[in-house]
């Protein structure tokens, strides 16, 4: 049946994109509105708060800077894995995708340490709205990271069988997974200053 659905691996002549690419961009548009709602809530709550702690006073900025660099690196390895696949270099593709997964896991581990030290200092979501926002935003972001890890692991192992039969469709999937991954990176690029530096 999938043979009957057009533009799975080749782009549509008028729109210029494949189904998967249009789909993932629509998904990212809705994700943008999701985080838009949360950022909006952040502005409202901060704007009406009588006091709001400076992020660097209560959060660990060096650790978060390290995490930012890790996430940026993972974005680069993700795009490199796509480029390697487009160049038909399967070995490099696997290397870069594995690196992406390892870096994202490293991000999650560091995040876990950060959460742990917050709990040790008795900082919980219920402490005040700053910590409420901190845990909600970073928690939701971490769920997105976890989702990306699952998708990338699938594409690295069982999903890569598709490359043998439909190489172009598989390349499209890697690109879509990459777009999602860069979006997660993008969210962090804004979360980092908003929560830690301001």
């Amino acid at each position: 049946m999938s043979a009957l659905i057009r533009y799975i691996s080749k782009p549509h002549p008028v729109s210029g994109v494949t189904n998967a690419k249009l789909g993932i961009w629509c998904f990212l548009a809705s994700e943008l509105m999701l985080f838009g709602g949360l950022f909006s809530a952040y502005i409202v709550l901060r704007g009406s708060a009588s006091e709001w702690p400076h992020g660097s006073a209560v959060l660990n900025v060096p650790l978060a800077t390290l995490n930012t660099l890790i996430l940026i690196s993972s974005s680069v390895t993700m795009v490199m894995s796509w480029a390697s696949l487009a160049l038909k270099n399967l070995k490099k593709f696997r290397f870069h995708l594995s690196m992406t997964i390892l870096l994202s896991l490293a991000f999650l581990v560091i995040k876990g340490f950060e959460y742990h030290s917050k709990f040790e200092h008795h900082h919980f979501p219920s402490t005040d709205n700053f910590f409420g926002m901190y845990f909600t935003l970073t928690g939701l972001h971490a769920i997105h990271i976890l989702g990306g890890v699952i998708v990338n692991a699938y594409l690295l192992f069982p999903g890569s069988k598709l490359y043998e039969t439909e190489p172009e469709q598989f390349l499209g999937r890697i690109e879509a997974a990459g777009l999602y991954w860069h979006f997660v990176d993008l969210v962090w690029i804004f979360l980092f200053p908003v929560l830690y530096l301001l």
């Binding site: 548009a29 809705s30 509105m33 999701l34 838009g36 709602g37 909006s40």
Partner: peptide, 9 residues
């Protein structure tokens, strides 16, 4: 697509 996510938030 664009109106539901804020409610999700």
């Amino acid at each position: 697509l664009l109106a539901f996510p804020p409610l999700q938030a």
